[in-house]
Design a protein around this nucleic acid. Structure first.
Length: 662
DNA sequence: AGGCCGTACTG
DNA sequence: CAGTACG
DNA sequence: GCCT
């Protein structure tokens, strides 16, 4: 029996065309190993080892930045697969036995290398100001380094895994629950007043306090926390002592105002409705969701209509296990379309939360540009809509559901062409999406679908299908000339589980001629662009951030019994390969964490976003005295592919996802 | 006194 | 452009 | 709201 029988390897870098790769692969295989060509939990079996080319190990940053980062994420989310240097394989063969991977684990190797290099690197590097931090960081690295004897391979992924596993997940009861509750209320209050900065103060305070594990009962204790000043400290103490927000504590607010704000806050729960709209509506006498439905329905944007129909669903938290199921469905669809593409689950899921707000999936692929990914994702969306998993699109049209003829794949055919393959380069980092030359639009969109589509499957999506998506009142409503009806119905069709929805089916209200007689026209125009009726839709181009909703299939496990499954918010983000590190950082969040990290970047003369870390340009007019300078124009891309490195360059100690609550 | 994240979509 | 959304 |  061959040495590696029963072992499954994934070889990195997976340059399947490279000669060296082929040779290595062959060697492994002749020794009995199964070598995976893609690293994916679903389409392929889980590897037992990830093997990294030793040449790459000489340059840790290169390894991290070039895809291994992905392996790490993958591993982080899927379990303990040791990442080892290929010398392990060679040693095994030399000794004809399977050796302990411990000494060959990448993390250790990498850190050793990093250590030797980092000194010179640090010094030689041009940033004078961040020296102190650097030191700290190094210290941390050293701290972790102690030759762990790793029997459990999970250690190599650093604390990230532990966090996920242990689940910092349970937020359970905080000893400061009472205060937190009151603060949340006030935060909401100021938010709906549009006093955003004050609200931000509360948000930060809540974040800090919620992470506190000991009871905060005195003014001093509270005041000592970062982000909590005298005013908040006082409130916290009072709240903890049992006072309520309404009457005593916030006497400044009369009950009437409080009530109004709660109503506004409720309105703003609708996706697509923020403080401004909520205030406007409220001022106009629209105080409840029912009011919105009955009096404003046909003025709502398509997204708002969907949002209204599913306020409750969308507000509900999603158990981590369910997120996993969504992720699997999407990932499989992605792989069916393009096996080399990756679908990573980010957001609170990656941070390890037990309950998540939505499902954030980042789609990327080696070397891919945004345009490449659009092609992939377009097909994925069609597929998922077709299967009935996706049920709504909050941005852009719903493939197969929207406008009438536009989705006939068959006809337009042609064209095109201009595609040009942009092989992107990475020379600098601003490749962006210039690729698709202008925005061609919808036709291109369709084209991409049809082109990419393997003929059969989604060659066309018959109207019937659309109806199917929306079982309920579609049928009766749909009348002649209302293909659009199908569309809107789909959106509305939910069996309203919300208490909010006041019985009347949208069909009926629509029929109520209230303002606009024709219900369908507004929506069509919404999708198409109000001015020009239909022709306009041609402008549509799949957004890089697609927002929508999905539902687990009926029989799925873990769903509440009885009730129809909830619609869940799904975000699918297309991330160009070159930006994956920055994008992962961004989409892992949390929002507050991102903001504070960006502030640090700013203070250190950088500009950080989901697209990368840039050196900022300071207009010569000002001196960057301690404070921040506006008009920082992103100048030169410093780093975008490696999440870890971004921390490093900023002089910040790496924070694993589960510690990024703030 | 003045900042408080940065990007991208929709209408 | 304002508004909303994403983390 | 808090922080500089």
């Amino acid at each position: 029996m061959a040495l590696f029988t029963n072992l499954t390897f994934y070889v990195f870098p997976a340059r399947t065309s490279a000669r060296a790769y082929k040779i290595r692969r062959k060697v492994y295989e002749t020794n009995g190993a199964v070598v995976l060509s893609t690293l994916d939990p679903k389409t392929s079996p889980k590897p037992t080892h990830i093997i990294v080319d030793s040449d790459w190990l000489a340059q840790p940053e290169r390894v991290r930045g070039s895809g291994l980062g992905h392996s790490e994420v993958w591993a982080e989310q899927n379990g303990d697969v040791p990442i080892v240097c290929d010398t392990w394989v060679l040693e095994c063969m030399a000794q004809n036995k399977i050796l302990d991977v411990g000494p060959f684990l990448l993390r250790a190797t990498e850190q050793k290398n990093a250590e030797t290099e980092s000194d010179s690197e640090t010094e030689s590097d041009s940033e004078p100001e961040r020296k102190p931090q650097k030191k700290l960081e190094q210290k941390q690295l050293h701290g972790k380094e102690p030759e762990q004897k790793i029997t459990d391979p999970a250690h190599i992924y650093d604390t990230a895994l532990e966090g996920v596993r242990t689940g910092s997940a349970k937020e359970e009861e905080s000893p400061n629950a009472a205060a937190l509750q009151g603060l949340k209320r006030l935060q909401e209050h100021y938010n709906s007043l549009d006093d955003r900065w004050r609200a931000l103060g509360y948000t930060r305070a809540i974040s800090v306090l919620s992470r506190e594990t000991t009871p905060i009962r005195t003014f001093q204790e509270a005041r000592a926390l970062p982000g909590i000043g005298a005013s908040l400290a006082r409130k916290i103490v009072e709240l903890a002592a049992g006072h309520t927000v309404d009457p005593p504590l916030v006497s400044a607010l009369d009950t009437v105002e409080i009530k109004a704000n709660e109503e506004r806050a409720a309105l703003a729960q609708i996706h697509g409705v923020g403080p401004a709209t909520a205030r406007k509506w409220h001022a106009a006498g629209i105080h409840t969701l029912a009011d919105v439905r009955s009096r404003l329905w046909d003025q709502l944007t398509p997204a708002q209509q969907i949002g209204l129909d599913h306020v409750e669903d969308f507000a509900a938290r999603i158990p981590r296990e369910e997120v996993e199921q969504h992720w699997t469905i999407i990932r499989e669809a992605v792989h069916a379309v393009d096996p080399s593409a990756e679908a990573l689950c980010m957001g609170s899921f990656r941070r390890g939360s037990a309950m998540c707000g939505d499902v954030d999936i980042v789609i990327t692929r080696a070397e891919a540009t945004a345009a490449d990914l659009r092609r992939v994702v377009a097909r994925v969306l069609v597929k998922l809509f077709e299967s009935g998993y996706l049920v709504a699109s909050l941005s852009g049209p719903m493939p197969g559901v929207d406008g009438p003829g536009e989705y006939d794949f068959g006809d337009d055919g042609d064209d095109g062409d201009d595609e040009s393959e942009l092989s992107d380069e990475s020379d600098d980092g601003k490749e962006e999406d210039n690729d698709d030359e202008g925005k061609k639009g919808f036709s291109q969109f369709l084209d991409e679908y049809s082109k990419a589509t393997s003929s059969t499957d989604f060659s066309s999506i018959p109207p019937a299908k659309r109806l199917k998506l929306s079982p309920s009142r579609t049928t009766e409503t749909s009348s002649p000339g209302t293909r659009a009806a199908a569309a809107c119905t789909t959106a509305n069709s939910s069996p309203s589980r919300g208490a909010t929805s006041p019985s009347q089916p949208c069909g009926s209200q629509q029929s109520s001629p209230a303002s606009s007689s024709n219900l369908f026209s507004p929506r069509i125009s919404n999708f198409a662009g109000s001015k020009k009726p239909i022709a306009h839709k041609q402008k549509y181009r799949l957004p890089r951030l697609w927002m929508g909703a999905g539902v687990l299939p009926e029989g799925s496990q873990g769903l509440e019994s009885g009730q129809p499954p909830r619609w869940r918010r799904i975000d699918i983000i297309m991330v160009p390969w070159a930006e994956r590190g920055a994008a992962m950082l961004h989409y892992t969040g949390s929002g507050l964490f991102n903001r504070s990290m960006r502030i640090v970047a700013m203070q250190r003369g950088y500009h950080l976003s989901n697209k990368g870390l840039y050196r900022a340009i300071v207009p010569k007019g000002r001196k960057s005295s301690g404070v921040k300078v506006r008009l920082c124009i992103p100048e030169q891309l410093v780093e975008a592919t490696d999440e870890y490195k971004i921390f490093e360059i900023l002089g910040l100690p790496y924070r694993p996802p589960n510690e990024r609550s703030k």
